[in-house]
Write a protein that binds this DNA or RNA. Structure first.
Length: 256
DNA sequence: AGGCGTGTTCTAAT
DNA sequence: TATTAGAACACGCC
């Protein structure tokens, strides 16, 4: 269940481990939801070196130069690993020269990769386009709960259920606030909280787990954390269902 | 042992 | 038409 924070870490670490490595072969597991065939991958990529790994929303992009890109979405349960030998079930395996294969597995087979996908036009939560003014304009158009809006991958890319709670607590906005009722000043606070919570979390995980390419660290979360009874400022943590997702919040957050 | 959790997409309703 | 609500997916985990 990786969100933007985890993916930023994975991106850096994948780049560190595979940049400039030559791709020999891509193997596709049975039952994987992939449009391109092994042959398509071979034609497009074999012998090419990985140039960079990028991220937009919850998708990773492996850039092999010559405009050849593989996108990867882990969905809920996709996991990356670098085993010495291929496991019996996987979605896709990238065999690089002189190093362990990069394997994407997913027991649910919902994780997806594609070859040269069309660009996802959504505004990424960490991008420069995601300004207070932009967020204000988006929220003005909606009358659903603010948490639903900031988790909507069609509106803003990267934020999932867990970080949404952390961000809304930081901004002191109640998750069920109706998006278009939130005063501009508070929306601006929310935009700042998105960036600061995400960036601070990246830093925390990098300190404690510098090399991970899978799994998610959640133990530092201050409200979306079933081990905690109170927020750092002493507010009792409550829970509710918002947009059919479990939501943690405190009365320190104002409902608009 | 039986819900819960999770991101996205799809359908249906407003 | 555009927006919104809710179901569905699938299964390891507690």
């Amino acid at each position: 269940m990786p969100e933007i924070v985890d993916l930023e870490i994975f991106k850096k670490n994948l780049e560190k481990r595979f940049k400039n490595k030559k791709l020999q072969k891509v193997e596709i597991g049975s039952g994987a939801k992939i449009e391109a065939s092994e042959k398509d991958f071979e034609k497009a990529l074999s012998g090419k070196k990985l140039k960079s790994v990028d991220r937009k929303a919850k998708e990773l992009y492996f850039n092999f130069g010559d405009d050849q890109v593989v996108s990867m979405h882990l969905m809920l349960h996709g996991q990356l690993s670098t085993p010495e030998t291929l496991p019996k079930a996987f979605v896709a395996a990238f065999l690089f020269e002189g190093t362990e294969p990069l394997v994407l597995s997913d027991y649910q087979k919902a994780a997806k990769i594609s070859l040269n996908p069309k660009e996802n036009m959504v505004v990424d939560a960490l991008s420069d386009e995601m300004t207070p003014e932009w967020l204000e304009a988006q929220l003005k158009k909606r009358r659903s709960p603010v948490k639903t809006v900031i988790c909507d991958p069609k509106i803003i890319g990267g934020i999932g259920n867990a970080y949404a709670d952390e961000i809304l607590w930081e901004a002191k906005i109640h998750p069920e606030s109706i998006a278009n009722q939130i005063p501009a000043k508070e929306v601006h606070k929310l935009a700042k909280a998105i960036k600061s919570v995400v960036n601070d979390s990246i830093e925390k995980i990098r300190e404690s787990n510098p090399d991970i390419i899978s799994g998610e660290i959640r133990d530092f979360m201050v409200v979306h954390n079933h081990k905690r009874k109170t927020s750092p400022t002493g507010g009792q943590i409550k829970n509710a269902t918002v947009g059919s997702r479990k939501t943690y919040y405190t009365d320190e957050q104002i409902k608009y």
